[in-house]
């Protein structure tokens, strides 16, 4: 029995309903929000700011530091005790690696940009939502970046390549692989690649090709969210264009 129809009725290349926002945390220097299905990420950026302790400082550039955290009630099942866990530490690290190729902090030697991501609710794909939200927050903070990073959890369920797996699909009783991917939007270069499950090389490459399209959809939402931050901007386009040409 092949996986011919997805558990929630989506098409194979269809992502769950998504919502993206920018500037949702006023205290932060930049903030973002990304919701896909029941997975919901808030991201806040503070910095560039002074980095302590001193030995972490890099005199050539600023650094980016990510902090991934699930709220105690955000998992299916019992309460998650607050505090650092190996899982969140690892995800924080891969977030840093997935974002740092686009971020340019050379203007700010010895400084740090902190990215905090918190989840009120999760249903698979949380590290991908974290990256998509964090990238909105970084852009909103005015951090120089050569491009946006977008992220989607691809996967293969019983032979079918699917975009944006849910928790139920990850737990489907068949051969399943879960492949979180992050891509630089323009070049489609990969900055996050993890996999657990079982997959052939051919299917892996097929999944990554399919990720391009899925990431494009995420990018569109990121862009709309950042544009919506400045309502009425460019309303005087024509007038200004004239002034400039004079």
């Amino acid at each position: 029995m092949a996986y011919t129809k997805r558990l929630d009725g989506r098409k194979f290349d269809e992502l769950r309903p998504m919502v993206a926002k920018a500037g949702n945390i006023p205290n932060a220097d930049g903030s973002g929000y990304f919701k896909v299905g029941k997975t919901e990420a808030y991201a806040a950026v503070y910095g560039p700011r002074e980095l302590h302790p001193r030995f972490l400082q890099n005199p050539k550039t600023g650094i980016i530091r990510c902090h991934y955290n699930m709220m105690p009630f955000s998992g299916t099942g019992t309460r998650i005790r607050p505090g650092t866990k190996r899982r969140s530490q690892e995800i924080s690290m891969v977030m840093e690696l997935s974002l740092s190729p686009v971020v340019d902090l050379s203007q700010f030697p010895n400084s740090v940009v902190d990215v905090f991501v918190e989840f009120p609710s999760t249903d698979a794909g949380s590290r991908c939502a974290a990256i998509s939200a964090a990238c909105i927050a970084l852009a909103d903070a005015g951090i120089r970046m050569k491009d946006m990073v977008t992220s989607v959890a691809m996967g293969q369920v019983d032979g079918a390549i699917c975009a944006d797996l849910t928790y139920n699909e990850e737990a489907y009783d068949a051969i399943v692989s879960d492949i979180p991917v992050a891509m630089i939007n323009g070049s489609k270069e990969i900055t996050l690649l993890q996999m657990d499950g079982e997959i052939t090389k051919a299917d892996l490459i097929k999944s990554l090709e399919a990720a391009k399209d899925a990431c494009g959809k995420v990018h569109k939402l990121q862009q709309d969210a950042l544009e919506a931050r400045f309502p009425g901007a460019g309303t005087d386009k024509k007038v200004d264009a004239k002034e400039v040409s004079q």
């Binding site: 029941k38 919901e40 009630f73 955000s74 998992g75 299916t76 009120p120 609710s121 999760t122 249903d123």
Partner: peptide, 10 residues
């Protein structure tokens, strides 16, 4: 506001 919690608020 969240489905994972038994009750929630914002």
């Amino acid at each position: 506001i969240t489905v994972t919690a038994e009750g929630s608020s914002r």
